[in-house]
Nucleic acid binder design. Structure first.
Lengths: 149, 149
DNA sequence: GGCGATTGAATCGTGCGCGATATAAATTGC
DNA sequence: GCAATTTATATCGCGCACGATTCAATCGCC
């Protein structure tokens, strides 16, 4: 049976997946702000460093593909990482349109301090590795379906 | 057995729940940008309207408690909703520190157009209601654990 | 009644995200 | 070989988020 406010329920804030995602991301951001304070990184800067720690020397758009960010976001962010002496930005010789991002020694060595962060975050979320992996995979699945729209 | 790069795996971008959350939220935001274009609302503005459609006449901090946002974010956002003639902002008589936010007739009537959005978003995410509810609850649980840290 | 503490909103500064546009380099087509 | 198109990055403008601070109103306490 259809009640008059079935559509009301659909518009209820707490019933919506999108708000669960939004507010949890806000909380996660807050958590990482604290964890990253002593590394002097913002959360998107940390993600960028993760990408470079996995593979050094990438172009702006290669980094962007992995983070789902474009140059309008990355260029200023990378300039700040450069100002912090964690990376260098240099035009490619082969293709002058591209800018190669490379870690400095300081950038590489920051990785040691960063190693503690995933575990600290896991503790804060009070997730077992299995729970975390399951939720992660569900989110990646959702993102993929959203991306292909 | 411990391999030398166990910690490397922990720092891998795609292995991290936080990045799954981050990138899925970016994708969700992009989806809503499209859906909300004809309502002339941003996504945080839409969430604010959801709060007010559920209960009219709330103070800035009451809205903030539901959205997990503070006045530094809400005040300018609410001023934009006021400029769009969707809400009014008025100092409370009883307590002059508070500002009461109320829907205008235009704000109330926008709800009719918004009714279509949750369903459209559900289709885009290609989730069954059950999947969506399960993921939503898992996220709310995580957020709660993150908040109480 | 008066005064220090608290509360609610606003303001300021910084750093994302991203649509739109610009610019320069490389590639394609003829 | 050169004009037209495409590609990679940068720039601009706007709207969040949020830490830090300010300011006025209210509360608590004597």
């Amino acid at each position: 049976m259809m009640t008059p406010d079935d559509t009301d329920d659909a518009l209820a804030l707490e019933s919506q997946l999108c708000f669960a995602l939004y507010s949890t991301q806000l909380a996660m951001n807050k958590l990482y702000r604290g964890l990253l304070r002593e590394l002097d990184l913002t959360y998107p800067q940390y993600l960028t460093m993760l990408v470079l720690w996995q593979r050094d020397r990438q172009t702006v758009s290669e980094i962007g593909e992995q983070l789902y960010l474009d140059s309008a976001t990355l260029t200023p962010l990378l300039k700040r990482l450069e100002a912090a002496a964690l990376i260098t930005r240099q035009r490619s010789r082969q293709d002058e349109r591209q800018v190669e991002i490379a870690l400095t020694e300081k950038g590489r060595s920051l990785r040691e301090q960063a190693k503690a962060i995933p575990h600290a975050a896991g503790c804060a979320g009070q997730c077992t590795p299995e729970e975390a992996a399951e939720l992660r995979d569900a989110l990646h699945g959702l993102r993929q379906r959203l991306d292909t729209q």
